[in-house]
Design a protein around this nucleic acid. Structure first.
Lengths: 226, 226
DNA sequence: TTTTGTGTAAACATAACGTTAACATGGAAG
DNA sequence: CTTCCATGTTAACGTTATGTTTACACAAAA
């Protein structure tokens, strides 16, 4: 459910709008970043790799549509959500915006509540599709979609159970999982396995990770840390 | 890639609206079905299992919001797209609609073009497999229009299923596709094929490509890389 | 010291996949 | 209409990766 706060980049040349939107999305728990023109939007997007980009259509130094086209042409922005924001209320722009590859389109004057709802709806849709989110902790990333664990950029391959085990522990860093909990989450409630099964898998994960990030809490269980 | 025309169910109590929307969406190649009230919408949805449902909010025998809540509570409609259609132009309804689990919200008076664009945008997002777009990865080109795969300029011929399989995997490089996903995307939801069918096709693709770019993730599925 | 819980290595069991060959089917060519 | 060929599918068997158990060593707590 939690994972990490999603990053949202908002680009608009009107400071008032930036502020009111930032405030409202921030209140919802999103990490909000801003840009005040098209070029800055592209720049910040490349660095931040946000999950969602909200683009005003009318901006100096590249319009929202141009920014969208440029970003969409790059592989790393294929899946990024994009919402257009605009004063133009004519449908031609709306159609063009959506066909450029935007995921939604909101007309000014903007109601913060409506925008927040639309943002939530978009994320709901996308998340339910991509079962599971990527976990990032320090230099370790755990991506259940690509089924990939990365340490300092080095990809490494875990077996299915190993991955599920690590993903469970890392989903709540610091929290101790009882052996029972681990069993029911990773192995399922009806499966009966021996005592040492968990240890062995823990060991394999530790071994493959190379980093010491799974702590034993004797008599209780295991937790993921650092 | 074709698979099948997507099914869209439209529920509205105004025959004129049903007709104009049906016509416009039909022209886009969708299979359009209609219902004239809430109960009929639910009934037809259960039988048709459409990919998208467009619901008027104000309908006799259950409002659009009620229909949405009922359907969303069932597992088979978790991933179904839902768009609300309404004359109410106040934001309270809009917010409520989106929070009920709708994916979009279009206000009347409806512009058919805008609606069609929004429908297309939604499907684009969900499929996110850029229908009909040439994929280029490294020295490999996959052109679904010409139905052609090129490696270092050498054209090679794949059979239909082989091509669809490759195209699916390559559409999201790095992402692991579960065997289930592959089955439903390439073979369709209602076809029943044996366990080894996918393997055999994977093998044929690997063989024809000559390059090792399809990785097995045991117990999970396959992914395209490099 | 004894007890309890965990780490480790190796052996074992098995599920998942690869590979091949045979059969089925549908359309094209004759 | 028949034959042929490409494709799709299934079945059988081999292979490997993965999961599990066993056995024992070790450490900390009682």
């Amino acid at each position: 459910m939690e994972g990490k706060a999603k990053k949202i980049l908002i680009a608009d040349d009107e400071p008032d709008i930036l502020e009111i939107i930032s405030y409202n999305l921030g209140k919802e728990g999103y990490d909000v970043y801003t840009a005040k023109d098209g070029n800055e939007a592209i720049e910040r997007a490349r660095i931040l790799q946000p999950e969602l980009i909200i683009l005003d259509i009318m901006m100096p130094r590249k319009t929202g549509v141009e920014v969208c086209q440029i970003l969409r042409s790059q592989p790393s922005f294929q899946d990024t959500l994009i919402i257009f924001l605009t004063a133009l209320n004519d449908e031609a722009s709306e159609i063009k915006g959506l066909e450029t590859g935007a995921d939604d389109y909101v007309s000014k004057p903007i109601s913060p509540k409506v925008l927040v709802s639309r943002v939530n709806a978009l994320f709901r849709r996308v998340n339910s599709k991509e079962t599971g989110k990527t976990i990032e902790i320090g230099n370790i990333t755990i991506d259940p979609v690509k089924f990939l664990v990365t340490i300092d950029g080095n990809e490494l391959v875990l077996a299915k159970k190993e991955f599920e085990l690590l993903y469970l522990l890392a989903s709540r860093p610091g929290r101790v999982f009882l052996r029972n909990e681990i069993l029911s989450q990773v192995w399922g409630n009806d499966v009966i396995v021996g005592d040492r099964t968990i240890d062995v898998h823990i060991r394999k994960v530790r071994q493959k990770l190379g980093v010491d990030c799974i702590t034993t809490v004797k008599g209780v269980g295991y937790k993921f840390e650092l």
